[in-house]
Design a protein around this nucleic acid. Structure first.
Length: 323
DNA sequence: GAGGCGTGGAA
DNA sequence: TTTCCAAGCCT
């Protein structure tokens, strides 16, 4: 997102608003903004009619399946996640099955989803679940948050989607929706602010069931209609309640976000090297790695990075393989 | 808190 | 073709 320091800070937050439980005593309790109930109710009604039938939303999918999907969906589009998700949960239907494998198997099964450290973290999380939670995905936010690879968003998402808990689920979609509806700006700030947490908490319906439905619905609204580039306001259930729409959809006015380059970067080099390891069942020699990236200095830096991250290991004979 | 970390589809 | 980016996390 482009930087926008005032994005959600202008949100309707009552005196001493906030949300995060850990600072509630300092900031007080926020009141929901005008039309909060209408926003959440209309969005939930729309969701009931238009929700995508994704496999991890199957009531029988289970918490582990939800957790796997959330890891895979971090920065990766649904369409690319689907096939990998299916084979993953079929092969490892519960945390203990994955934990019993070498971490390299997780990296291999991750395929080309990108950010392969997520595969390593999911494996580590499964191991932790076996060791500390009896093999069952924990059902409370704090325990989830303590797992490797589970940050604020993912912990709230699992708590809400898998266990129906009342949690403020603030992903990039929800943040964009809230920025537009309540702050009248096109995009939220670069990073999650206290004001956004306060707003999201104030919006949370009091009934657990409604809160969980709102979490899923607001994400879906951002993913399907209130998109970053071409929002479909004509089909949006809350256009009349949307500050950004009312203002004529003013474009983001902050400094433009620097587009991330990829070609020629260390990231691409790492990707090339790891692909060689992933696709080989046996350890590979240095020449095989040298062959896929010409620039020697960068190649060595990338390899060192993979080793440091635990995505690759060097054997005594100087060959390399997945961990 | 800014920056690093993959990938491939869509506009 | 180039640009932009898609349900973040960690240091």
């Amino acid at each position: 997102m482009p930087s926008q320091t005032t994005a959600a800070s202008t949100a309707v937050t009552a005196p001493g608003a906030t949300a995060a439980p850990d600072c509630a005593d300092r900031a007080g309790v926020s009141q929901p903004p005008e039309h909060a109930d209408e926003v959440t109710e209309r969005t939930r009604a729309w969701f009931a009619l238009h929700r995508r039938d994704l496999p991890w939303r199957d009531p029988h999918a289970g918490a582990w399946a939800v957790m796997v999907s959330e890891f895979m969906l971090q920065q990766t589009p649904v369409a690319r996640v689907l096939p990998v998700y299916e084979s993953w949960v079929a092969r490892w239907p519960e945390p203990s099955a994955l934990a019993a494998e070498e971490p390299g198997e997780a990296v291999r099964a991750w395929g080309r989803l990108g950010y392969p450290r997520r595969a390593l973290r999911l494996h580590a999380a499964a191991t932790s679940i076996v060791q500390r939670h009896g093999g069952q995905v924990p059902d409370d936010y704090e325990a989830l948050r303590a797992l490797p690879g589970v940050g604020e968003y993912t912990a709230a998402a699992i708590a809400s989607f898998a266990f129906g808990r009342r949690a403020a689920v603030l992903d990039t979609n929800v943040r964009r929706v809230l920025a537009r509806v309540f702050s009248g700006v096109e995009f939220p700030a670069d990073s999650l602010t206290a004001a956004e947490r306060a707003l999201a908490t104030a919006l949370l319906p009091s009934a657990q069931r409604d809160a969980a439905a709102w979490a899923a619905a607001s994400m879906e609204l951002g993913a399907l209609l209130c998109t970053a580039k071409t929002p479909d306001c004509a089909r949006c259930p809350i256009t009349e309640l949307c500050a950004w729409h009312r203002l004529g959809r003013p474009p983001h006015d902050g400094p433009p976000r620097r587009g991330q380059i990829y070609a020629g970067t260390d990231r691409q080099a790492r990707g090339r090297l790891l692909a060689v390891l992933r696709e080989s069942r046996s350890p590979v020699g240095k020449p095989a790695l040298d062959a896929v990236w010409h620039a020697a200095e960068q190649r060595e830096r990338a390899l060192a990075g993979l080793l440091a991250d635990g995505l690759a290991v060097e054997l005594r004979d100087g060959t390399y393989r997945l961990p």
